[in-house]
């Protein structure tokens, strides 16, 4: 009855194949890096929103924290960048642990509080008083360890890890129990599910992924300001991608991010406010008219979506 692990392997192979060949055939690497980061973020938001019902507007907080966690371990501890990316993920987990109490809040309140938390993380990291540690508002330079090839494969690794987790949620009984908690936490508890544990695992995994993506991104662009890794658009875009494709599935967020980021790139990044306008309208229209996303259309014609 559960979905087959084969479907998960197929999606992983597809994602790996596409980005591996693109690396050799497609010259615009920074576009690919951004796309992979967005795919991972959309998937990370999907893990939380699609499987547990918490909408993390402040998801960018974990991305930014991961970027800084990675950068600071490179600058101060001189870690190998790949290990530093993992450290970035872990620093986002630390932030996630601090924010665990937010899970007591329901729907809208969680969303708002997570947004405030991301803002707070930004205010702290960019604070001029902390310049000796974080460089404050002046930004980080990782030019000394810049390595486009390994950086690229690391980002792909992050994306594959994320996709694998999503696939695990989709096919496992653990994932089913998360969706049970999402639908009705009381019933889940009286079906024997440890509600707190389930939510914690999903939450911290999602934080970890946000942080990994941030770390890999930081390494790949190698120079950044706090406002560029804490930009709210880094929450908004992936939310739109995930909701547009369809949350609670593995391929929904991937398709959503692929299509919309493609569109974004095709029209050109020169005028971000036009995208803000378009995406704002998309959020409104989607929630009002197609809350299940693209995959809900497939479900209507009884196509099973993985």
């Amino acid at each position: 009855m559960l979905k087959s692990p084969l479907a998960g392997l197929a999606v992983l192979a597809l994602v790996a194949g596409i980005f591996a060949t693109s690396f050799f055939t497609f010259s615009n690497e920074s576009l690919l890096i951004n796309l992979m980061a967005f795919l991972a973020l959309a998937q990370g938001i999907n893990l939380l929103y699609g499987f547990t019902g918490y909408m993390p507007f402040g998801y960018v907080g974990f991305f930014g924290t991961g970027a800084y966690g990675c950068a600071l371990t490179i600058l101060f501890l001189h870690w190998n960048p790949i290990a530093a990316v993992v450290a970035g993920g872990l620093s986002a987990v630390v932030l996630g642990v601090i924010l665990v109490p937010l899970l007591r809040l329901e729907g809208a309140y969680f969303g708002i509080a997570s947004l405030a938390a991301a803002q707070a993380a930004y205010e702290i990291i960019s604070n001029p008083n902390l310049t000796s540690i974080t460089q404050g508002p002046y930004g980080i330079n990782l030019g000394a360890v810049y390595a486009p090839t390994t950086g690229y494969w690391t980002m792909l690794g992050v994306l594959l890890f994320t996709t694998a987790i999503a696939a695990y949620f989709r096919i496992s009984r653990f994932g089913l129990s998360l969706m049970a908690i999402r639908d009705n936490s009381n019933s889940a508890a009286t079906a024997g599910v440890n509600v707190l544990r389930g939510r914690l695992i999903a939450w911290l995994l999602s934080c970890f992924i946000g942080g990994l993506a941030g770390g890999a991104f930081a390494w790949n662009i190698s120079f950044f300001y706090p406002q560029s890794v804490f930009a709210l658009t880094l929450s908004i875009f992936p939310i739109v991608f995930a909701v547009f494709g369809g949350v609670g599935t593995v391929i929904g967020p991937l398709i959503g991010a692929g299509l919309l980021y493609g569109l974004y790139d095709a029209v050109g990044v020169a005028n971000p406010e036009y995208f803000q306008l378009l995406y704002g309208l998309l959020i409104v229209a989607l929630l009002l008219f197609m809350p299940g996303g693209l995959v809900s259309l497939a479900k209507k014609v009884r196509i099973h979506v993985f």
Partner: peptide, 21 residues
């Protein structure tokens, strides 16, 4: 409540974008 949160989040983006433009 959650739906309103997400929808008005979209509205806020639209309002900000139009103002910027």
């Amino acid at each position: 409540e959650l739906a309103s949160l997400i929808v008005f989040f979209g509205v806020s983006q639209v309002l900000e974008a139009i103002a910027t433009i």
